[in-house]
């Protein structure tokens, strides 16, 4: 299978996501001005500061040409994973409900946190253990939604780094094919640099795409 990793101006964790995805499948960077997803089976919107987070995190990136193709791809049931800034972009693009607000500390926070899988029945968590150790690093990560949402990941008790509503670390859309999360699974794929728990997210995607191909 092939992952397509979108690169906006200001994306920072794009190559990290590329390398992480390449551990479980093929992976290619997608340029923000192109509308062609180059045959990718799953799309990753990576972390970073697209367009400098100017105006509002993710608010400008959603208008990039590549997002038109991503929105179509998601509407057709394609898997879309938004990590950190990618989560913010997906909320801005209307692919996910809710919004991400400033951390209650009003500061950027980096921390290795424990995250519980609240919903193991998604294409992104089907191969995941119940608890993951992943790093968070953001200033705008406090999830808020006035409507009920499908929660996929929650910070473990006492681990919430940003004041997120109901300890929410990641949510998906109703159809279950679009996931946004603040923790960084792509920074937890190598024992040398931390935990390897993040691989489970990428492996879940591969397993799901593999099932689709067989079906």
């Amino acid at each position: 299978m092939k992952f397509g990793i979108v690169r906006f101006p200001g994306s920072c964790d794009d190559v990290d996501a590329l390398d992480a995805a390449a551990r479980v499948g093929d992976a290619e960077l997608l340029w923000y001005r192109d509308r062609d997803l180059r045959g990718a089976d799953a799309i990753v919107i990576p972390g970073g500061f697209s367009y400098g987070d100017y105006l509002r995190a993710g608010a400008i990136a959603r208008f990039a040409p590549v997002m038109e193709a991503v929105i179509e791809f998601a509407a057709a049931g394609g898997l879309v994973l938004g990590i950190c800034n990618g989560f913010q972009v997906l909320c801005e693009a209307g692919l996910l409900p809710g919004a991400l607000l400033c951390n209650t500390s009003l500061r950027f926070v980096f921390r290795q946190v424990l995250v519980d899988v609240a919903d193991p029945h998604t294409p992104f968590t089907r191969a995941a253990p119940p608890r993951l150790s992943l790093p968070v690093k953001h200033a705008t990560g406090r999830y808020y939604s006035p409507e009920p949402v499908r929660v996929v990941l929650r910070y473990a008790p006492g681990e919430n780094p940003n004041g997120s509503q109901d300890e929410i670390a990641g949510v998906c859309n109703e159809a279950g094919n679009v996931l946004g999360l603040m923790p960084h699974p792509e920074h937890a794929v190598d024992p040398l640099t931390g935990s390897t728990d993040g691989l489970a997210i990428f492996e879940s995607i591969r397993a799901h795409v593999g099932d689709l191909v067989q079906a």
């Binding site: 920072c12 990290d16 390398d19 950027f108 980096f110 921390r111 690093k137 920074h187 640099t193």
Partner: peptide
């Protein structure tokens, strides 16, 4: 202090 900095981006930090 260092919790306010990203030490892991670029995936090299051992």
């Amino acid at each position: 202090v260092f919790e306010q900095y990203d030490p892991v981006v670029q995936s090299r930090t051992v």
